[in-house]
Each structure stands twice: as structure tokens, then as C-alpha cells.
């Protein structure tokens, strides 16, 4: 996996190869039953509540932590090109999908690139268009870790990882 940032750290580019044809990776990314099996990192569990994969549609899901805490997120699809790319605007929200105004939106672009019949390459771009986005995210999680003491850092970082869900 390769991860690079632009100099101002507003955009992250992640690329990763998978030993599967692009059709399968696309399915794993767009079929909620499969997506829920891998989207949440570590011990977190992902549950999709709504998936309407089309322009103007949205994906509503939550991640549940080992302590039972839930974080709700939604992605509003901006463009879908079959087995080519998905663009959406990611928000934090409540269980009904009502967008939280406290968090700035994050632009996601996922590109599906066939390498050969058995391999594909995925390129994810995460853009925090508003420079304040990163600041808020960081202040909500990462920096608190330092002020609260290192013993809480893992917990905070775990929460912060979810912020990038």
C-alpha cells in the first residue's frame, strides 16, 4: 500500500493492489453485505443501514466499537461509473442520517483500475476541501490525546480512526 499527502496535507492519496479482478473488488465495495465485512478497521464492526448506489443516492452506516459505541456516517454519492469510479461526500450524522454540522464534509474518490485478469489496483483520494476540516478532526481526536495523557491516546486514536470512516 502506498499513501502520500499533498504538501498542505489536505489531500491523501492511497493506492493498493488486490489479487482479484476489478469486478470482484467493485462488488466488495458496493454490495453492503460484503462491504460490511471489511470496511470497519480493527475490532470495529460495520453495519450498512441504507445503500442507494446512484448519483444523488446515499450510503448510511455505522461502526460499532468493542465497547458498544456507535458512530454513524453517511456518504452522498456524487458520481458512479460502473467498475470505474465512485465519488461521494462523506459526513458524520445521527442514526437517521441527519448530517452533523459540527464536522466538515470529506470528499472521497475511489478508482478501480484493472491490472490484468487476476489483479486490480485501487486508488483512493480523500480530500478535506476546507482547510479547517483537518484541524477540527485533529482537534477532536489526535490533539486531545496529548493533552489528556498518553494512557488515553489509544482510545482517542481509535475514535479518530472512525472519524475518517
Amino acid at each position: 500500500m502506498n499513501i502520500v499527502t499533498d504538501p498542505s496535507q489536505k489531500t491523501l492519496h492511497i493506492t493498493r493492489d488486490f489479487k482479484a479482478p476489478v469486478e470482484k473488488v467493485w462488488k466488495a465495495w458496493t454490495d453492503p453485505k460484503i462491504l460490511d465485512q471489511w470496511w470497519a478497521p480493527g475490532p470495529w464492526k460495520n453495519t450498512t443501514l441504507h445503500m442507494d448506489l446512484r448519483e444523488g443516492g446515499y450510503w448510511l452506516y455505522y461502526m460499532e466499537g468493542p465497547g458498544g459505541e456507535k458512530h454513524y456516517c453517511r456518504g452522498d454519492f456524487e458520481s458512479i461509473l460502473l467498475m470505474d469510479s465512485i465519488k461521494y461526500l462523506g459526513h458524520f450524522c445521527d442514526e437517521h442520517g441527519k448530517i452533523s454540522p459540527d464536522f466538515p464534509a470529506i470528499h472521497w474518490t475511489i478508482r478501480f483500475l484493472p491490472k490484468d485478469e487476476h489483479t486490480s489496483s485501487i486508488a483512493v483520494t480523500i480530500n478535506m476541501a476546507d482547510p479547517a476540516s483537518l484541524q477540527i478532526l485533529v482537534e477532536r481526536g489526535f490533539k486531545e490525546g496529548f493533552t489528556m495523557g498518553l494512557e488515553n491516546l489509544d482510545r482517542v486514536l481509535a475514535t479518530r480512526e472512525v472519524l475518517f470512516a
Partner: peptide
């Protein structure tokens, strides 16, 4: 900054390792 990026890297590595496993059974 490095630490932040490192955590971010770990998040995605974790996620994509899971996807590897899922893809094997697909």
C-alpha cells in the same frame, strides 16, 4: 504529522487486509 499519517496508514492497511480476506472467498 508523521504520527497522524502513520495512524491513517494503519487504518487503511487494516481495512484492506480484511478486504484481501473477503476477496479470497468471493
Amino acid at each position: 504529522l508523521d504520527l497522524w499519517l502513520e495512524r491513517f496508514r494503519k487504518l487503511f492497511e487494516d481495512r484492506f487486509d480484511k478486504l484481501d480476506t473477503v476477496l479470497k472467498d468471493l
